[in-house]
């Protein structure tokens, strides 16, 4: 109809809204998404699929290699590694999930509030976030463990706080860009409340970035939690948890039985890579949409 120069988004989507790069064409996004879904499904359904108990020890079956009975072999106490991995998935994923849920809500809320209110509130919030950001997450978590004691609660609280600025920073820059667009001015002129503008206009428009960032942060939080478990500051044995299994298997590793370390380590790596890739692809997509 008109000969207007099209903005990048139209070039990306093609005229008439036909997606030039549809979801189906983004193979990497689909693959990483599928892996993530599979991992979460396994974590939820795992105990149903496993045949044995994760805590049944048997000295006679210690450090066995893989067999039809023990697919991934057994650990130093003769526990089935595959069963322990399945059972451990819940605990290993629940921690990061909690951390990301809390830090996403806090970080997004803080970022949008800062951008919306502006002025001194924004300066103070930015300063707080910058200070928190400068604090190494793992160190902070260890500090909190020292105060609250080992277990899952202390590191989850600490990392939730530590990841908040990580989320807030990214959301802040996108929210600021969104805030400067005239449609937000139009909402204000129309008399809409601040709450409505922030929750119904700014939030949905930064959500693509929030989702991408949360996915990437999930992988990072998983590693941090695994490291804390590995250091013996997280959940304590005999619980099944991937980070703990790596620590537990390290003695056997030195004795020439690497299967527990390898299996648990592989679970961590696959999960982290899948969520990272998913996050990257989501980020690219949300960028392409503007």
């Amino acid at each position: 109809m008109s000969a207007l120069p099209l903005p990048p988004v139209a070039a990306f989507r093609g005229r008439g809204g036909r997606a030039v790069r549809s979801l189906a064409e983004d193979k990497l996004l689909l693959a990483s998404g599928a892996v993530c879904v599979a991992i979460v499904a396994l974590a939820l359904l795992g105990p149903l699929l496993a045949s044995g108990s994760p805590s049944r020890t048997s000295i006679l079956e210690a450090n066995l290699g893989s067999s039809s009975q023990h697919w991934l072999g057994t650990d130093a106490l003769g526990r089935d590694i595959f069963t322990r991995l399945l059972y451990g998935a819940r605990l290993s994923l629940a921690g990061p999930a909690l951390i990301i849920a809390v830090s996403t809500v806090l970080g997004t809320g803080a970022a949008i509030t800062a951008v919306w209110v502006g002025g001194r509130v924004e300066r103070v919030l930015n300063r707080v976030l910058d200070v928190l950001f400068a604090f190494p997450a793992l160190l902070f978590a260890i500090l909190v463990v020292a105060i609250l004691g080992t277990g899952l609660v202390a590191p989850v609280i600490a990392l939730s706080i530590a990841y908040t600025p990580y989320m807030a920073r990214v959301v802040r820059s996108v929210a600021r860009r969104e805030r400067s667009l005239p449609y937000i001015d139009a909402c204000q002129l129309a008399g809409l409340s601040s709450w409505r503008i922030c929750s119904r206009h700014i939030l949905p428009n930064v959500f693509g970035v929030v989702r991408a960032q949360a996915s990437i942060a999930f992988g990072a939080a998983l590693i941090d939690l695994a490291a804390i478990s590995f250091l013996g500051l997280g959940v304590s044995p005999p619980a099944a948890e991937w980070g703990l299994m790596v620590a537990n298997g390290s003695t056997a590793l030195l004795n020439g039985y690497p299967q527990e370390c390898l299996a648990a380590g592989a679970c961590i790596v696959v999960t982290v890579v899948a969520f990272n890739l998913l996050g990257e692809r989501l980020a690219v997509r949300s960028e392409g949409r503007r």
Binding site: L181, P182, Y183, C187, L189, G191, H201, N205
Partner: peptide, 23 residues
């Protein structure tokens, strides 16, 4: 807020940023 809205409205220079892309 509502009274002011009914006094003055504005149409902005940039048609591409004037509408919420999700609405």
């Amino acid at each position: 807020r509502k009274r002011r809205a009914r006094q003055v409205q504005m149409v902005f220079q940039d048609p591409y940023g004037s509408l919420d892309p999700r609405q």
